[in-house]
Amino acid sequence: MRIQLLNLAHARSGDKGDTANVGLIALEDKYYPLLVREVTNDRVKKHFAGICKGKVERFELPNLGALNFLLHESLGGGGTLSLMTDAQGKTFSTALLRMEIEIPDQEAQELGLA
């Protein structure tokens, strides 16, 4: 089945210069391995096509059931140079939660998602 990250995680995002950071946090610990497996750098880079012009880095925080993404060259120059409404990347969090991932039906059932 296809499922949107909104149903699996919450998130908060912020900025460091022209880089946006998105912390993606599993709503339940049992979803974390799924996030690690499915929400890869490549997927995130593709998801933010046209928005993130640089590379995407990913860091794992298994202790928090969270992944931290750095989206480089995403904020129109960053800080005060940026002309964007969201110059500080505050809404990149919910933008990532739009992503949909594919889960085998059996796994979805085991996780109580189906």
């Binding site: 912020g14 946090i25 925080l61 969270a66």
Partner: peptide, 24 residues
């Protein structure tokens, strides 16, 4: 958790003048 990941870079390398903190 939401605040911990806010404006985070490499979570193992949170650099301050006083120490390096490991968020993991």
């Amino acid at each position: 958790k939401e605040q911990l990941v806010y404006e985070m870079g490499d979570p193992r390398e949170y650099l301050t003048p006083d120490c390096v903190a490991d968020f993991t």
